Computed example of a mutant assay.
Amino acid sequence: MIPKTGLSTKDFIAPDSFDFRFSRLFRVGTTWGAASYLQILASELSDKLLAELLEMDAEMTITLHIQTVDQAAAVKSIKAKVSDIDKMKVEEQKKAARSGYDMDILPPDLVTYSNDAKTLLEDLQSRNERMFLLTFLVVNMAPTRRELDNDLFTVSGIVQKYNCTLKRLDFQQEDGFLSSLPLGHNGIEIKRGMTTSSTAIFVPFMTQELRMDGEAVYYGLNALSHNVIMANRKKLKNPNGLFLGVPGSGKSFAAKRELVNVFLATKDRIIVVDPMGEYSPLIRRLGGQVIEIAPDSPHHINPMDIDL
């Protein structure tokens, strides 16, 4: 009998303490952590950004808070931005006229902002795009500060390839950590405006999964999502299967693994035609019958007795 201590399961699972006294770090028990946000500088992003982050061999939580914006309010806001940029262009042209140089020469950043704003306005008005506010949070955890710094350096290198920057949430570590929990709460006011097509890049749920119930057998991992593949070939449109691969790639191992899984999970009859005799030890281990057919063996097959 376990004596009553007044403790619940949560007391054993939850960490001993939370320490948010640091400005750029925090501690959960003996584990170090850091909460950051992704500053998106690029006007267009690739879906490979999120894929590379998720493939990292590190303890990391990526949280996306996406808030929709009223279409009329979004169009009004972008129109105001376009007007402000046009006003800035007029001011630059006046300066150019007073200085005596070409009025068409404008600062490159101003030209870029003007083109991006007009493209965004056109997308919202005529291309069935909507406006969203995105908060992209990244929380890294590691047993030591050195490992945490290495993970943060790796993440920063990945996002920089896509014209983004990983910014630490200074003096907002607790808010960042709480916002990364699956509570639907966003305590970080840093948001980035995104259109529908740009936001869709951050939704990594486009893979096809195969996970059947019942007498399903394990066939490996999905190359994209890394989820297990469980299938019952008898229920598929084509139940036949082949193991293909170069020598030494594991074809025999995969076949034996499926054989064992079928033996343990189903009541199917298993018949192995084995010219090389490599399955005999496994069949004997499973309590099966091994029938040797050879010119000098007592067993034979009479084709006239086969019931077709």
Rank of each mutant, 00 (worst) to 15 (best):
M56F: 02
A58H: 09
T61C: 00
I62H: 07
I62M: 13
I62E: 15
T63G: 01
H65G: 01
H65A: 02
I66R: 08
Q67P: 02
T68L: 12
V69A: 06
V69G: 05
V69F: 06
Q71T: 03
A72Y: 14
A72G: 13
K76H: 09
K76V: 11
S77C: 03
S77K: 12
I78N: 07
I78G: 02
K81Y: 07
K81I: 11
K81A: 12
V82T: 13
V82C: 11
V82K: 13
S83M: 15
D84N: 06
I85T: 09
D86R: 06
K89E: 08
K89C: 05
K89F: 00
V90D: 15
E91A: 13
E92Q: 13
Q93E: 15
Q93T: 07
Q93C: 14
K94Y: 09
A96M: 01
R98P: 00
S99W: 02
S99M: 10
Y101N: 14
Y101V: 06
M103V: 00
D104N: 13
L106V: 02
P107W: 02
P108G: 04
P108F: 07
D109W: 01
V111Y: 09
T112N: 15
D116R: 07
D116K: 03
D116A: 06
A117Y: 04
A117R: 01
A117H: 01
K118L: 12
T119Q: 08
L120N: 09
L121Q: 03
E122S: 04
D123N: 12
